[in-house]
Design a protein around this nucleic acid. Structure first.
Lengths: 231, 231
DNA sequence: CGGGAGCTTGAGGAGGATCAAATCATGTGG
DNA sequence: CCACATGATTTGATCCTCCTCAAGCTCCCG
């Protein structure tokens, strides 16, 4: 029976592997023996776009590895408006706060249909030494994401920001790129919803992007990168 | 002799304590025995304003606890311009990158005369399990700082951003507030040097701040916070 | 005294915010 | 199946903020 549980855990792993290489790293150092310490199942959760994984102030019980899709971390400004401070992509971990604080600090909300892997806090603390190196990598990733958002998405003209967003959203050169609501685009780039909409529409007219489905775009990466870099 | 070394290390600690409570936390969990494992001295380094602690790409050999002053972490935009992605204040740690990567990712540069405490990478890895909890706290702080920079300093009008910067720069209500060069203010807030200068000058004329020395300000916190929140 | 670096200020124009309305997509009930 | 309500996207018109280019200004140092 215990072997079954272990097998189940490893199956979860195998599924992670199919999500893309980076999803593996959190458990990369673990042995079979380690998995015998995991009693709680590691749940797969499917979030529709707009669903929230957690809210700020909510008691933190778990962290979440993003397997597919896209999450926003948002916080609130003094005047009540919201600002997206980071994007989490497959392989990133949401809710690392849980490991050092009793409550979450952001709202984590799916911008696209998103699959995450729920990892209870106490599972992590039980494995803590084993996960040490990988957790540090994940913290590092969290910092990188955040700095990326400041550097690429909160700097320069609206044109540049939108162009950089299109560049960031899909890694592959010929890959399709799934966008999200204009309001979220605005909150992410620090511009208004209208300017976000206007600029995306303008990009469509200039054939910098072509909408092949609802919020699904084929991109002219070369020209987008030129705009991203200057002008 | 060994006891001497330990005493010296503890002296270093005691000095940290005087810098302010937060500087303690990285070593909070250590025992006297642990300090016997530290052979390398922990250097105090004094940086004049403008001095760089490390540059991006430089091989990472140590991390640094900020004891006094202010550091900027800056990165470069596609067009070569620089953007400050985070501020580090006393108690924060610069160069956590060193623990997971071979080179630094930012330029860390003093914005004010700054005292840091150099902690060689291998000292940290030798103590790694003991520091685990505290390191996580520091990573967490790094993320908080970065999100703070996005949320408070890269959002809203130039007036709001400058106001929020003045509010952030000194914690105490009646505390004096040391500013830095207008070019850095611009790179931090995502505005031009001229707008930064103009706005600070305007704040001086409106007596929102009063310059009592070169780049040293007394603030009208109440009115500044009103501007920060909406206006 | 002269030069340089950083700060301040001016005038003009471009870009984005704001207010407002039209269009489009989706779902609901008659 | 259509009429209608709802919400998101797009577009328009106007105003204001901030960028750009440029010129003075202050302070410090050789």
């Amino acid at each position: 029976m215990k072997d079954n549980e272990i097998a189940a855990a490893w199956n979860g792993m195998a599924a992670c592997e199919r999500c893309g290489i980076r999803n593996l790293v959190l458990f990369a150092d673990l042995t079979n023996e380690d998995f015998s310490f995991i009693h709680l199942p590691i749940d797969d959760i499917w979030l529709p776009a707009g669903a929230s994984l957690y809210q700020p102030g909510q008691s933190s019980s778990a962290l979440f590895t993003v397997r597919e899709g896209l999450l926003k971390l948002e916080q609130y400004l003094p005047d009540g408006a919201q600002r997206i401070v980071s994007l989490l992509r497959p392989g990133d971990v949401a809710g690392l706060d849980a490991l050092v604080a009793a409550t979450y600090e952001h709202a984590a909300i799916a911008l696209q249909p998103t699959k995450v892997c729920r990892l209870p806090k106490d599972v992590v603390s039980r494995l803590s030494p084993k996960l040490h190196r990988q957790l540090m990598k994940k913290w590092h990733d969290a910092v990188l994401r955040s700095h990326e958002c400041t550097r690429e998405l909160s700097t320069g003209s609206a044109r540049q920001r939108i162009a950089r967003l299109f560049v960031l959203l899909a890694p592959g050169p010929d890959e399709l790129c799934r966008l999200f609501g204009r309001e979220d685009v605005g909150a992410l780039l620090g511009i208004t919803t209208q300017t976000a909409s206007r600029t995306v529409a303008e990009f469509k007219r200039a054939h910098l992007v072509r909408e092949v489905g609802p919020n699904l775009f084929r991109r002219d990466l070369e020209r987008l990168e030129k705009i991203a870099a200057e002008g």
